[in-house]
């Protein structure tokens, strides 16, 4: 089932992240995909995540699609100008890849090629607009396309960003530019998320709550200190500190949040960050059952 169809079916959608390898060996990636696939509606493939150079997202999506998976093709604006972005998008469409997540992308300075020229010829809002243009049958220069893609475009939002107002204003711009669904930065505080959802529900878009499974109190504190837009409430940090099996506690915390958010949003997006094996446990604990694909 396509991601769009999954949303339309009214089910509580689950997506999870898959990172392409640094190198040409895609076996491990495909293996991870096999583990996750039974539990999720789509696999979301990162694009040189955190500005660390890896195998191309497009190639990874092709591999996964050919293995029978539904993918979400993440596209950042950091590494390619408008020509390259458009041509890669057309390439993806030619392989039957329709789900695109449009991002500006982390800056090259935070990655492993700090000396690189950061392109940013476009950014997320403009990229969404480009996708819309391509869907309409022309490129950015207004030239007609031979064969038109049918992208299902998504975008990201950070509900705990400080200050929040410009972030929400940009959310609106993304909606206007053609975003059909959003996945959020990791969220932990249900009340705060609920307040964000009250805002988001004014628009005809689907929202996936971002889930990062905490594995230790140290990880929670690190994220509070270093990851912009993520706030792990103190109560949760204390819970992890007190726990003898922090990993399991983390799974329970994620599952508890998901149960709470279930009536608020349209699904979840699990960012496993190197612990993909925990994703099925979270899904299980949260009581989200999947039919095993035939």
């Amino acid at each position: 089932m396509s991601l769009a169809a999954a949303f339309d079916s009214g089910r509580f959608v689950v997506t999870s992240e898959v990172g392409p390898p640094k190198g040409t060996d895609v076996a491990a990636m495909l293996e991870t995909a096999e583990v996750l696939a039974p539990h999720v509606d789509a696999l979301n493939v990162t694009d040189n995540q955190a500005a660390v150079m890896r195998l191309s997202t497009l190639a990874a999506c092709v591999h996964l699609t050919q293995a029978g998976h539904e993918t979400v093709y993440q596209v950042t604006c950091r590494d390619r100008n408008r020509l390259a972005l458009q041509s890669d998008l057309l390439g993806a469409a030619s392989f039957g890849i329709t789900n695109v997540l449009a991002l500006t992308g982390d800056h090259v300075r935070v990655g492993d090629h700090r000396e690189a020229k950061a392109v940013f010829d476009l950014e997320s809002v403009q990229l969404l607009r480009v996708i819309q243009t391509l869907n309409a049958g022309t490129d950015m220069a207004g030239k007609e396309l031979h064969g038109t893609p049918e992208f299902y475009a998504g975008a990201v939002v950070t509900p705990d960003s400080a200050p929040l107002a410009p972030q929400l204003a940009k959310f609106e711009k993304k909606v206007a530019a053609g975003a059909r669904y959003f996945q959020t930065q990791a969220v932990y505080d249900l009340a705060s998320f609920e307040s964000f959802m009250r805002f988001a529900r004014r628009f005809e878009v689907k929202v996936l709550a971002g889930i990062v499974v905490l594995r230790s109190a140290r990880m929670a504190s690190f994220m509070n200190a270093n990851i912009p837009g993520i706030t792990v409430p103190e109560g949760i940090v204390a819970e992890l500190t007190a726990s003898e099996d922090a990993a399991s506690t983390g799974v329970q915390i994620a599952a508890r949040f998901i149960r709470g958010a279930r009536e608020m949003c349209d699904g979840i997006h699990i960012m496993a960050i190197g612990a993909e094996h925990l994703a099925p446990r979270v899904i299980g604990e949260a009581g989200l059952t999947r039919e095993v694909p035939a």
């Binding site: 500006t104 939002v157 950070t158 410009p166 972030q167 940009k170 837009g229």
Partner: peptide, 19 residues
Amino acid sequence: AKGILNGPCGGVNDGECEL
């Protein structure tokens, strides 16, 4: 840092750039 023309990216941290 990214020359964005349409609003802050998700990297903004208490009003500071992610860099």
